[in-house]
Design a binder for these strands. Structure first.
Length: 524
DNA sequence: TTGTGTTTTATTGCCTCC
DNA sequence: GGAGGCAATAAAACACAA
């Protein structure tokens, strides 16, 4: 049966022309589409044609796909709104984080609008657009991609649904995850719900794409929380402060300064995370006057990269933010830190640590799939090549796609950074789905028995045979997140001198990251 | 292996805007 | 009227449980 299905799917790909029936998009196509959709919910005609050309699809198909994708988004959001219309408190903060974009992300706005907005704004619209009810945002907005990450915890309720949703998710679930974590870790807002609480236990995937939104949200919420805190336990901010003791700014921050913020969540007094918390100064204790963006970015980036993500870790980060907010002129307590190198190393270090954890878990839980991921993730040097080859395989849809695969060769080195973050997501997705991994393993068993399962599969079709949903998740999270579709587009469109706003969240993030690092380096 | 439920794709009709 | 989008529907593909 599986064999037949495999054959069937292959037939779909190979003899797609003959069969005028409904044909599934190849993973590469779906990845590209999702990625593009992530950037542009309403692609212009030009975009569509380009996309169609590059993916070997018709414009009609592209349009239809986007249309259905939007419907899917809407539907999911509706469902989730109904299912989770209870996070009022969370919505307060979420509303706060809204950037004031009142655009209807799904309905009224025509595609042309996107030409004049920042790509990041497009993302923001997706995140904060009016279409999204507050509860959606707080709970599980954009469940599709987000499901990949947060939903992985909850296999029971999500069923196998949103397999596609779980793809990106890339792109997207991290949003939700971030949101949830953020809200939850504020110390003021209790876990949104059981699901969010669960999510907390998870190690979130680093998602540079949402750094911008998150940083704003974080700053806003921290401000709010600070304000609330002071209103509760002390004078309102900016109203009256007790005079600082002499030399208050000459000594490192004392615990009493921070503790008041946490007393709610300090339920883990001697948690191992404390070590992580104490390590934090190395990340961002250089309270330099440069914009807080970088700091918050680091904050969330490391959150994304760190494996534990327990309360104390967050608390420490929050405390850093608070310190930044409240002690702005508390400059350079810890000089020579925060260099770009530090940042990068820190991220890398976190990544490596987490990677090893992942490997551990995979080796114990994920059979072949874990191996597959291992083989891909643990060898940075092979990553590009692998992507290329695999994408090449998936790109069999059309010559155009094959051509497209070349773009992956140009992936900048910092791709690896993102990559591991996405793998984090990927891992979580796997870990959940692999709750029933035995079954999957059973499916792989036949392959295993032949040994060299991966190679075997790669050999025949150059396509890793995984149960579709799993494969989709893997590929989507892995490649879509990494796949520089933006690059591909950029090249093409820029060469045309198109005025189109190029989707650039990923590359932009990477760029932003680099620039941030550069800023850091420059500032230090 | 089969039945069932879910997801994805394709089609069609209607609406809105230019 | 044409183009684009949304919504409803059908059907295929797929995953999963029994």
């Amino acid at each position: 049966m599986e064999e037949s299905s495999e054959v069937h799917s292959e037939e779909n790909k190979v003899s797609s022309e003959k069969d005028k029936k409904r044909r599934l998009k190849t993973p590469a196509q779906v990845m590209a589409l999702e990625r593009f959709y992530n950037e542009h919910k309403y692609p212009t005609e030009e975009m569509k044609s380009q996309l169609a050309e590059q993916l070997g699809l018709t414009e009609k198909q592209i349009s239809g796909w986007f249309c259905h994708r939007r419907l899917k988004d809407k539907k999911l959001l509706r469902d989730e709104a109904c299912a989770s219309g209870r996070q009022d408190r969370s919505s307060v903060v979420i509303q706060d984080r809204g950037s004031g974009l009142g655009q209807d992300s799904c309905g009224s706005t025509k595609h042309g609008d996107y030409r004049n907005i920042d790509p990041r704004e497009v993302e923001s619209r997706r995140l904060y657009g009016n279409d999204f009810q507050v509860s959606d945002l707080t709970y599980k907005h954009m469940s599709h991609y987000t499901e990949t990450v947060s939903g992985t915890d909850d296999t029971s309720s999500e069923s196998s649904s949103s397999s596609q949703d779980k793809l990106f998710s890339q792109t997207e679930d991290p949003y939700d995850l971030e949101n949830s974590r953020y809200l939850t870790h504020n110390g003021v807002i209790a876990p949104i719900n059981a699901k969010s609480a669960k999510i907390m236990g998870y190690k979130p995937s680093g998602y540079l794409k949402v750094k911008g939104e998150i940083e704003n949200a974080a700053i806003t919420a921290v401000k709010r929380q600070l304000g609330g805190h002071y209103r509760e336990d002390g004078p309102p901010l900016g109203v009256e402060f007790q005079p600082l003791p002499p030399g208050a700014f000459e000594s490192p921050i004392q615990k009493p300064v921070r503790e008041p913020y946490y007393d709610e969540d300090l339920s883990i007094p001697n948690s191992p995370d404390i070590s992580g918390a104490e390590r934090q100064p190395s990340l961002s204790n250089g309270y330099e006057p440069y914009n807080s963006k970088l700091s918050s970015q680091d904050l969330y980036m490391e959150e994304a990269n760190s494996s534990g993500m327990h309360g104390s870790h967050y608390q420490d980060k929050i405390s850093q933010l608070k310190q930044k907010s409240t002690v702005l002129n508390h400059v350079k307590r810890f000089p020579k830190q925060n260099s770009s190198l530090d940042l990068y190393e820190d991220s890398a270090g976190e990544t490596s640590v987490y990677n090893s954890k992942r490997n551990q878990r995979m080796s114990s839980k994920h059979g072949v799939e874990g191996m597959k991921i291992d083989s891909v993730t643990n060898h940075r040097g092979h990553y590009d090549g692998k992507i290329e080859s695999e994408m090449h395989d998936y790109a069999n849809v059309s010559p155009n796609v094959i051509q497209r695969s070349e773009y992956f060769k140009f992936k900048p080195p910092n791709l690896t950074h993102n990559r591991f973050e996405s793998l984090d997501t990927e891992e979580r997705g796997l870990s959940t789905r692999m709750k029933k991994g035995e079954k999957v393993n059973r499916k792989w068993k036949g392959i295993k028995e032949h040994g060299n399962q991966v190679k075997l599969k790669m050999h025949s079709t150059n396509e890793i045979k995984v149960p579709k949903r799993v494969r989709h998740d893997l590929l989507q999270q892995d490649y879509v997140t990494k796949a520089p579709f933006t690059e591909m587009q950029t090249r093409k469109f820029l060469s045309k001198g198109s005025v189109m706003e190029m989707p650039s969240s990923f590359s932009e993030d990477e760029t932003a990251e680099n620039s941030s690092s550069q800023e850091l380096g420059a500032s230090s």
